[in-house]
Structures are given as structure tokens and as C-alpha cells.
Simulated scan of single mutants.
Amino acid sequence: MAELSHIDEQGRARMVDVGDKPVTGRRATAAGRVDCAADTIALVKAGKTPKGSVIATAELAGVMAAKRTADLIPLCHPLPLSQVEVTIAFDDARPGFIVEAAVRTEGRTGVEMEALTAVSIACLTLFDMLKAVDKGMTIADIRVTAKEGGQSGDWQRA
């Protein structure tokens, strides 16, 4: 297993110095899901939820969250993001929602945390907007699905 870069020789948390790394294109994708009742999906599709446009609001919340990742996670570097895209799709079979995010930057460190934050907050927003009609929802399987760029190279979840 690789050495933990956010821990110094004395075991204290530290922000990694990325100042000597080259600026390169970085991209990461993440996904997660919100499981809910079939009736909840039907309400969203019909546009009859108590709080309005559920999908659009959750997608926008995810974009906003990605831009604030460094404010939320103590050792993350603030990054100039060039793209954040959050998409939410219905999963009628499960039932629930599939939430995906793609984040890009030109920088010295990756954007995996930004993609994960976008998905997490989009899922939480779905939960918040639908909890009045479905208290049994579950948020699950939030994960990085791919990353591109950087010293460790490209990676894709199998």
C-alpha cells in the first residue's frame, strides 16, 4: 500500500505541497444512487413533489458543491474547475436515482474529491427535497468511477 501523503513524519495531518508538480489536465468521474419507493419516482416524473423541480435543483446543488470542496474537506486544495457536470437519471428497476458527476481542471492535483462531493451533495439534495414523501430513502454506493491525468496516470473502475 502506498504511503499516506496527508500525514507528516510525526503523524500529524498536513496539506500536501503540490507546488512543484506540473500543471496538467485532470478529470474525474463519480457516481452514487438514491434508492426510494416507486411512488416517489412517479411523483418526480409527474412534477408533483412538494418542493418543486427536484432533479434540476439537485444537479445544480452538486455543481455548487464541487466548487466548494476545499471549504468542506480540510486538506483539499482549492482548484479552478473548468467543468462540472452533474446528471441524475431515473432507475425504475431499483427504483431510485442514479447520480453521476464529471469534473475537469488544469492543475497540479486531481479532482476526485470534487466529483465525489458533487455526487454526495446531489444525493443529499434529492433526499432533502423528497423526505416529506419518502422517509425510507437510502443513499448508497458513492464512488469514484474514473480519473485521468496526474503522476499516477489514468484509472477506470472495473
Rank of each mutant, 00 (worst) to 15 (best):
M1Q: 10
M1H: 09
M1T: 13
A2R: 09
Q10W: 07
R12L: 12
A13G: 10
A13K: 08
R14S: 07
V18K: 14
D20N: 14
V23I: 15
T24E: 13
G25N: 12
R27S: 10
R27L: 13
A30N: 10
A31D: 00
G32M: 01
R33T: 00
D35E: 10
D35Q: 07
C36Q: 03
A38L: 14
A38N: 02
A38Y: 08
D39K: 04
I41H: 01
I41R: 02
I41L: 15
V44H: 09
A46D: 10
G47M: 01
G47N: 03
G47V: 00
T49V: 06
P50L: 05
K51N: 10
G52L: 09
S53F: 11
V54G: 03
I55P: 01
A56L: 14
T57F: 13
E59F: 11
A61C: 03
R68D: 03
T69D: 10
A70Y: 12
L72T: 12
I73K: 11
P74V: 10
P74C: 05
L75S: 11
L75H: 12
H77M: 06
P78K: 05
S82P: 05
Q83R: 15
V84H: 13
V84K: 06
E85T: 15
E85K: 09
T87V: 09
T87N: 09
I88S: 07
A89E: 14
A89L: 08
F90Y: 14
D91L: 06
D92E: 12
A93T: 12
G96H: 04
F97W: 14
I98S: 04
I98G: 01
E100F: 02
A101K: 11
V103M: 13
V103G: 10
T105Y: 05
R108V: 05
R108L: 00
T109C: 07
M113Q: 10
A115G: 12
L116N: 10
T117L: 01
V119G: 04
S120K: 03
S120E: 04
I121W: 02
A122C: 13
A122T: 06
C123M: 03
L124G: 03
D128M: 06
L130A: 08
K131V: 01
K131M: 02
A132H: 01
M137G: 04
A140Q: 13
I142W: 00
R143Y: 03
T145F: 06
A146V: 05
E148F: 12
E148N: 13
E148M: 15
G149H: 04
S152R: 12
G153C: 12
G153R: 15
D154P: 02
W155F: 07
R157W: 05
A158M: 01
